[in-house]
Nucleic acid binder design. Structure first.
Length: 422
RNA sequence: GGAGAGAUGGCUGAGUGGUCGAAAGCAACGCUUUGCUAAAGCGUCGUACCUCAAAAGGGUACCGAGGGUUCGAAUCCCUCUCUCUCCGCCA
């Protein structure tokens, strides 16, 4: 949700920004609804003020008097008018709000113009994909993979795309998670273990509802949703709160399983670990002062990149173009890791600055030096998502027998130099 | 799951149908006086929206949430949520 005053006073800027984002969104219609809304608010409140004044005058009259009875009759009429006006106001405000909420966040000036993912810009590349053995195979073709990541039994027990990780593979997942959490907390992110189900208010605040409802699993009967990412519960940690300016910036990280229906994504990208319905991810979230949020985005990205470096996985960083960043994003980087066996880049992290857009929706503010509440800026990024990192780790480092030499950084967590142990 | 109690401004806590956006205290901020590692006095002290060129000012809403009764609701009724206590169940 944009700042309403800014929206009104800078419509040309907003129009240009929306166009840059390739969003179809009728700004004039929203403005017209805003006008209508303000008119009805004015009418309803004026009439309501009359009602209150009449009421105050009447409170002084003796209860049983003729005068009193007369006033009651008059006020009965006033009350009916107020009620009608307020009903109309409710309808118009609801209409306006849904239109206004459909206006996307403005892309930052540093975001390149573009229509689709083809226009994203590679801003960095680390490691050499060519250096990885050419004999690499897709992870699902590695010896024993089907037993270590048992998609067949997962399908029996739950459904397609719900894997069991077995034996040393489960251990390797745990090692990765532990590695991520240690690295994140070491640089100042507070570790959290949030609920993995959230209510509708939380899902709305971070933007999963109403637009992306079909992507979440619902818990029938309880009005809850299984989280598609820890971003949802963690960002909502401070929903409807006013923070102290001195406490900013606040950093949190959380490991959770993530649940995604992935409706409509059946196809060639879903083999093996590339896209599953439940996966493990450590998420990073920041609540920051508006003046620093774009610097905070750079440090967030650098930190996520450092994880890949320590895992010795070749990666590249994409600055997402205006047409490819999400609805609430002001600026977004994607980190893609090289999976030698598949010969392709896999997205393992998305680092985003939502500026005040998400925080306004979630009503997260801070009190500035003058004592006035202001909306914070929120950011998040994966740090990191396990299955695709795991896929790359396996594909890039496996020998013909399926033995995977692990990067130095991971060995203490796994307790061995290679997978599987012995 | 059962029974009971409760939810008021940053905190504590009054307020059971009309002049209550809400007493009082604490905390915070400002000023004054005295002077010393503080006290006292006075004042300020919620948020959102509407109005206004802006500020000032004015208006409306908000006493857990949502509905209802009434000319009028923090106050009465209904539903829900949460917290606490007791019982049951349970990793």
């Amino acid at each position: 949700m944009l700042d309403l005053k800014y929206f009104r006073e800078n419509t040309d800027t907003v129009r240009a920004a929306v166009a840059k984002k390739k969003f179809a969104c009728d700004i004039d219609a929203v403005l017209a609804l805003d006008e209508e809304r303000r008119r009805i608010i004015h009418d309803a409140e004026t009439r309501r003020a009359e009602q209150k004044a009449a009421n105050a005058a009447m409170a002084k009259l003796p209860k049983g008097s003729d005068e009193f009875r007369e006033q009651v009759a008059h006020m009965r009429e006033l009350a009916a008018q107020v009620k009608a006006l307020q009903a109309e106001q409710g309808l118009i405000e609801a209409k306006w709000k849904s239109a206004f909420m459909a206006v996307p966040n403005l892309p930052h000036e540093s975001v390149p113009e573009g229509d689709s993912e083809a226009d994203n810009i590679v801003t960095a590349q680390w490691g050499d994909p060519e250096a990885v053995g050419t004999a690499a195979v897709p992870h699902w073709d590695l010896p024993g993979f089907a037993d270590y990541v048992d998609l067949g039994r997962g399908a029996k027990v739950t459904g397609a795309g719900w894997p069991f990780f077995v034996g040393d593979m489960a251990r390797l997942v745990r090692a990765l998670l532990q590695f991520f959490l240690e690295e994140n907390t070491r640089v100042g992110f507070t570790e959290m273990m949030p609920p993995v189900c959230v209510n509708a208010d939380s899902a709305t605040a971070t933007g999963q509802l109403p637009d992306k409802e079909g992507q979440m699993y619902e818990v029938p009967g309880d009005g809850l949703y299984m989280i598609p990412t820890a971003e949802v519960p963690v960002t909502n940690f401070y929903r409807d709160e006013i923070l102290d300016e001195d406490d900013l910036p606040l950093y949190a990280c959380a490991y959770t399983p993530c649940f995604r229906r992935e409706a409509g994504s059946h196809g060639k990208d879903v083999r093996g670990l590339n896209r599953v319905h439940q996966f493990d991810k450590v998420e990073l979230v920041k609540w920051v002062h508006p003046d620093t949020s774009f610097d905070e985005l750079e440090s967030l990205r650098e930190h996520a990149e450092s994880l890949l470096k320590k895992l010795e996985l070749p990666y590249r960083t994409l600055l997402m173009c205006s047409g490819d960043i999400g609805f609430p994003h002001a600026k977004q980087y994607d980190l893609e890791v090289w999976a030698a066996g598949q010969g392709r880049w896999l997205e393992v992290s998305s680092c985003s600055n939502f500026t005040d857009f998400q925080a306004r929706r979630a009503n997260i503010r801070f009190r500035d030096k003058e004592g006035k509440p202001r909306v914070v800026h929120t950011l998040n990024g994966s740090g990191l998502a396990v299955p695709r990192v795991l896929a790359a780790l396996l594909e890039n480092n496996a020998d013909a027998a399926g033995r995977v030499t692990l990067p130095e950084a991971l060995r203490p967590y796994f307790g061995a130099e290679a997978f599987p142990r012995a």
